[in-house]
Design a protein around this nucleic acid. Sequence first.
DNA 1: GTAATTGCAAAGGATTTGCTCTGGT
DNA 2: ACCAGAGCAAATCCTTTGCAATTAC
Lengths: 149, 149
Amino acid sequence: MTSQSPVPPQQLEQSRGTRVRGTRQAEALVTVLGKLTGFHSAQEIHAELRRRGERVGLTTVYRHLQVLSEDQVVDAIRDESGETLYRRCATVSHHHHVTCRSCGRSVEVEGKAVERWAERVAAEAGFVDVDHTVELFGLCPECAAQARE
Amino acid sequence: MTSQSPVPPQQLEQSRGTRVRGTRQAEALVTVLGKLTGFHSAQEIHAELRRRGERVGLTTVYRHLQVLSEDQVVDAIRDESGETLYRRCATVSHHHHVTCRSCGRSVEVEGKAVERWAERVAAEAGFVDVDHTVELFGLCPECAAQARE
DNA sequence: GTAATTGCAAAGGATTTGCTCTGGT
DNA sequence: ACCAGAGCAAATCCTTTGCAATTAC
């Protein structure tokens, strides 16, 4: 496949001090991330790469995802079984997701209210340098309809 | 120390259909949980039991914590490294915590605002049967002070 | 006596690390 | 030639399971 990634590469690579040297593997990973929707585990992403004929090691996938998530290029959340799931970050600002318990589809949601809440209650408890984890899980419209049948 | 647990045992055991046969190990675990504050990993709890001279297997600790958390007798959260931390549930209603990144101490915080927020944004996305995970991590007053020295 | 509970040892599963090989510049 | 990046294999770490020995009732 010779087409360009639908997402301009620079948009994903231009963090400061680009840590990744443009290698075939890095590019393949970024491309796949750009095409996938929703959250996927490192192993799934690795499988997807191989499916596409890209020869990339699992270790490499892990290492890149780690860096990308530190650089805020991808979001990382943990599912209920403790696996880490990654997804290309659509927006730059901080946000959260509702993930479908049944099909895994996920949607970003506005989170200004939580940010403020987190700041406030943490401050009330005297805590500083606060960070938060917020994940919503539910049934998406489709799956809810199916379940109703 | 031979004193009674400061927390009346019935308060912890009276769920419906007590699933646990009164064994020495189960009682020791419940007692320790009653004395500990904040969240602790199964391994820490196990270590604490041994420190007190109680001979309880790690497997048993894991098995009990699993059941207790299903029965909502303890809260279970996952820290940033993926380990599961447990704590005796202080209140019955839904609530959240700020946990100190450094010393592990944790404080319950009021969460009505998030509950409402979660409901709202999930509904906007068309999701139903929504559940949420919210954890705050920061530095508690003491640890913050130490860090400042 | 009998079924539930223990706990050791081993298995599992995700992620990380050691270290050598490879490819880009 | 040099160095970052790749990747295999082995190591970690938490947690769960298999199964025989033990214990509560």
